[in-house]
Every structure is written in structure tokens, then in C-alpha cells.
Amino acid sequence: MIGLGLPRGFVVTLKNFIRPPVTEQYPDRHVGLLGAAKEAGMNPFQFLVKKPADSLKAIAGLATVPVAVKQSPRFRGNEFTYFEDRCTACASCAKYCPLGIIEIVSVPGKIDAQEGESYKLEVFDIDIGRCMFCGLCVEACPYDALHMGTNFERSKYVRDELVITKEELFDAPKRPSAFYRPQFEEKGFDPFKETIEDFHDAGRHEQKTYDELKKKWVDER
């Protein structure tokens, strides 16, 4: 109907005008007195009495609280989680990376009577400055040693600082993402609250049983 279109349109805009905002303020969100008191875990009166300076700031509209951005556990992000004890320096990750930004240098390591010969990893660098977080390196790792991280804040002033070294990976908080690691989803691991420090807790996503391995490597040969 000609003539009704515009008023109907204004009804829609009016409805949207009064609905709660969906925008997330990042990194901080401005709060009033009520919000600041809630953040401090007291009721507004307590807050007024105990922290007069902060309350004045909140009333003036200057108080901010950090925002927790809602992320999925599969988020493919920064700070790869890496378990050195599991890594065999096979360099599958380096070969699989479309950009070739993983650098691996390995040297012959110790010879163990039980486990045979092993390689020692000397360099394991990921040039995060060029990484596009596709996750193919994680998908390629046959021993579940490398996981995507869930962090996304890693701004630096110098490009060279963006290269993650083995030591840095070793010390970084281990908050692996559930990307290509269904075992984390099965046990309900929440990377935004907990960390996994020991590789034994990380689980394997497709661990073959002894019989399967025997069939593949002994019987079929």
C-alpha cells in the first residue's frame, strides 16, 4: 500500500531503538555506579562508603570494567600450545603449513635401549607475524603435540618479537583450543578458565590400540 510504507518502517526503527544493544565494547566497557559496585562485589551503599573515590569516578562516568569476549572453545588463536615431551621433531607441521613459517632444526639425540633412537629439537620457531591461523599445522601433527591457542592479544612494536620460539612456547600458559582436538570437547575442557600443564592430561584424539598397531605394522607386512 502506497503511503503506509514509511510509517511501518518507522515502527521497525522504533522497536530497534528500544531493544538492548548487541555491540560488545572492547576492551573496556563504561559502567555507572551500579555496575562498578557489582564488579567490586558489594552493594552500591557499601561501595559508596568503602570506596568513595571510585564511586565518584563511577558517578562521573569514568569507571570502566574489562569485557570478557565470548569465544568458542574451538577458537583458532594465538599462543600455540606445545608439549615438548610429545614432539618427535618430525616436522609434519612445518611441511603442512601453507606459508612455511615454522622453522624446525633437529639433531640426533640420545639412543635409548627401550625406545630406540630419538631426535632432539634445537629450534622450533613460529613466525606469528605471517601466520593466518588456518590450523593446518595442528591438523598435521601426528602426536598431538601442537595445539592452537585461544588468545588473540599479541600486538608488538617490532616484527621480530612476533616470532614465537621454543622456550616461549614452553613457558606460555597452556590454554589449548579444541580445534581438531575432540578429546577436549569430550571432557568439557574450557580453555578460558583452566590450563593444561601436563601433556598426560591433554589426551590423544585418535590413539590406536595395541592390536590395531600390531595389525598395521606387523601382521600386514
Binding site: S72, R74, F75
Partner: peptide
């Protein structure tokens, strides 16, 4: 947001693989 649940990325998804997708959808 739904894509982030599925594959962990929002724009550059890389979700599909030859023969299907890389991971089942979460619950």
C-alpha cells in the same frame, strides 16, 4: 558466531576438507 562454533574462525573458515569437513559440529 555459528561459524566460530563450527570451525573456530569467523571469516577465513577453511572448514571444508576433501571428503567432508574437518570436525563434527559441537553439541
Amino acid at each position: 558466531d555459528l561459524f566460530e562454533m563450527l570451525c573456530g574462525a569467523r571469516i577465513t573458515n577453511s572448514y571444508l576438507r576433501p571428503g567432508g569437513v574437518f570436525m563434527d559440529a559441537p553439541d
